[in-house]
């Protein structure tokens, strides 16, 4: 769907994006994560045709975004971080306006905008002036607006900034709904917990570099190493450790009074077999679960590693 190849963007001597190469498959909900000034918005603006890269190219469904702007614009829906609305324009007219900017006929616009307003839960606000809507409603309207021409790729830059918790939940549900419809979505955000709940793949940027990218599970595994397993038990701690050490690919990391933490490369069946062996050997296992690495820890770990490379991102041009 979206292929970014060796993308560079310089602002004078400062390099905002440094050799960014990224592939986002069709139907993915991709989370773009990074601290302020990491280059997320610059990348998004380049993808949306609002900025020219210093070097590199972007392909959307195999079409070069730089040389085929007209076709690309039909394939992208863009929701900026900050946006304004026109005074004295009703919700229905707002949708009409943007629909006609994509050269859609009045009939096409009427049909699709009804569906979209229903999707974003604004059906009852059609005749309401846009500037009277709440921030959350405006944000949802902006998503509906971005979908008016049925784009294949939806790009959202910090869509949750400034929203109250309820509006954030509504926005999350809306995006998950769109994902289930098969839309490819790229979303940048600082709210990592929400991204981890929504996205199936992520890219972490820092100082203009794409530090890591891929499916969330793969990125977690790459960063945190092998899978972590926590076994809680009431009795038979020594036996449990002995049995665990008998399995290849298992490393006991820590042993607590009622808890053993281990890392492993086993399949689910092998884990079940090991737990079964422990129970058969009179170990009182009260539970076991996989220790999930969270996105915030991942983000901190990855960006801290890259922190020292700040100077490397300065352009030599």
């Amino acid at each position: 769907m979206l292929q970014i190849n060796h993308l560079y963007k310089n602002y004078g001597k400062f390099r905002a994006v440094n050799d960014l190469t990224l592939h986002i498959p069709q139907g993915d909900l991709f989370g773009f994560v990074g601290p302020n000034g990491a280059g997320k918005t610059t990348t998004i603006r380049i993808v949306c045709g609002l900025m020219v890269p210093t070097a590199g190219n972007i392909m959307i469904n195999g079409v070069d975004a730089m040389t085929h702007q007209k076709e690309i614009k039909k394939q992208i829906g863009y929701v900026p971080d900050f946006f304004g609305v026109y005074d004295n324009l009703k919700v229905r007219e707002y949708m009409d306006f943007y629909g006609s900017m994509y050269r859609m006929t009045s009939r096409e616009i009427a049909k699709i905008s009804d569906d979209l307003l229903e999707l974003v839960n604004l059906s009852d606000k059609k005749e309401v002036y846009v500037d009277t809507l709440s921030r959350g409603m405006k944000q949802r309207l902006c998503v509906a607006r971005a979908l008016i021409h049925n784009p294949a790729l939806l790009v959202l830059d910090e869509p949750n900034s400034g929203l109250d918790p309820r509006a954030r939940v509504e926005m999350k549900e809306l995006l998950l709904n769109l994902k289930s419809m098969g839309k490819t979505i790229v979303i940048s955000s600082h709210i990592l917990s929400e991204l981890s709940e929504m996205c199936n793949s992520i890219g972490i940027m820092d100082h203009g570099n794409l530090v890591t990218a891929g499916r969330i599970e793969d990125v977690m595994e790459n960063v945190f190493g092998s899978n972590q397993l926590i076994i809680t038990l009431d009795d038979g701690r020594e036996t449990a450790v002995r049995i665990a050490n008998e399995y290849a690919g298992v490393k006991v990391n820590s042993v607590g009074e009622h808890e053993i933490k281990l890392s492993h490369t086993m399949s689910k069946a092998e884990i079940a077999k090991m737990i079964g062996t422990m129970i058969a050997n009179d170990v009182v296992v009260t539970g076991f679960h996989k220790q999930e690495g969270d996105l915030e820890t991942l983000f901190m770990r990855v960006t801290n590693q890259e922190g020292g490379q700040e100077n490397a991102t300065q352009s030599n041009c």
Binding site: G49, K73, G84, V85, Y86, R103
Partner: peptide, 13 residues
Amino acid sequence: ERQTFDIMMTTSM
């Protein structure tokens, strides 16, 4: 100033 320009420039206009 109204921050509607970028959206306008991403349309087919």
